[in-house]
Design a protein around this nucleic acid. Structure first.
Lengths: 190, 190
DNA sequence: CTCCGATTTCAGAATATACTGAAATTACAG
DNA sequence: CTGTAATTTCAGTATATTCTGAAATCGGAG
């Protein structure tokens, strides 16, 4: 028997009231972001945990099936915001969340763009191409889809540039009070 | 019997292949954005339609129940991107989508901030306040939640400023090639 | 190779969400 | 007020998603 297991049947990590509140809320906010409750709760737990946790501990703390934890951890690893760590002399996998919120934000943005924006751009291009040789009755649809495509392409390019900024620069820029005003003054009104 | 009704049992609007492709795709993209398929499809249909449509026509075109259309239209009106229009001498409600993609983008961003970001900020503030008088064991959680709160507050302020720009300025800014580089050069490296 | 703890897979159960159709309500014409 | 088209509400049904627990797989120790 490993040193850590002792006689705990369900190895739950103790949580303060604040920690519980945060985990529950993060779980509820998951849906609009396209991740289910358990995945979001596990992420919340790992984010505030003072040390990496085993799947067993996560299951015990959140009261969900061990198998569910396994699947959810795989998804979080797929997003690239959770990774495996190991403890010397312990065969079990320990999991820890990325700490840097700015980096996490960037990764999630990138991933969502890949999954949602890129396929939509592809479809819009196809549709506009199809409508180029269409009847006059489809003129309105063509106009609308072209505008939508142009909008999304503008956003996409802006995002690509924004992505080239270092986290440090991005942070400094967003923290500037009156930053947007300055941008408007310096760059726009030429 | 009104002039428009004639003998059509299910009043469907004819759709080109491109239009169908767009509507189907937009419906699939709905989930990650927190709206269900029908709502997203109705929005897509109204967006490309050359004229306002009745609920009946929408139901016929998309093959969904009339009552479902009613509920979904209500939701779209709640988001503020669809509105009712009327035709002289016709009692029925006609529905049309907002046309300006930039304005639609702004409205959706605003609404999502209100529904997702604001409540999370409130919870994080509560949690950090609770952890201020907590045991040393919770030091890590406090640190993590403080950082997350600071990050979200920075984003929130940046968004508030960004919101003060006119659509025209915003558009010009995002369309600037090398815009981000210029911002970095002019504002950041002081 | 065998054993055993750790992990993953997956079929079925539980739950949540979306949708339908009938009934109720609304609102306008006559 | 009465009749009727238009719309909304809502209880029940259908569908989709999430979760569980048992079984299979993995992988290292001996």
């Amino acid at each position: 028997m490993s040193l850590q297991t002792e006689l705990t049947a369900t190895a739950a990590v103790p949580l303060s009231a604040a920690a519980r509140k945060f985990i529950v809320h993060w779980g509820e906010m998951g849906s609009p972001w396209g991740v289910n409750r358990t995945v979001a709760q596990i992420h919340a737990l790992l984010y505030i945990a003072p040390r990496p946790l085993t799947a067993e501990e996560i299951a015990g703390t959140l009261s969900v099936a061990r198998s569910n934890v396994s699947t959810s951890l795989r998804e979080l690893q797929g997003w690239g915001i959770v990774r495996v760590a190991h403890v010397l002399g312990d065969r079990r996998d320990y999991f820890e969340s990325m700490r840097d919120v700015w980096e996490m934000f960037r990764i999630i943005l990138e991933e969502r763009k890949r999954r949602e924006v890129d396929p939509t751009l592809a479809v819009l291009r196809e549709c506009v191409a199809l409508l180029d040789r269409a009847r006059p009755a489809d003129a309105e649809a063509k106009q609308r889809l072209s505008e939508l495509l142009e909008f999304m392409e503008t956003m996409d390019s802006a995002y690509r540039e924004f992505r080239t900024l270092s986290i440090a620069d991005l942070r400094r820029f967003l923290k500037l009070r009156g930053g947007m005003r300055k941008v408007a003054g310096l760059i726009l009104s030429r």
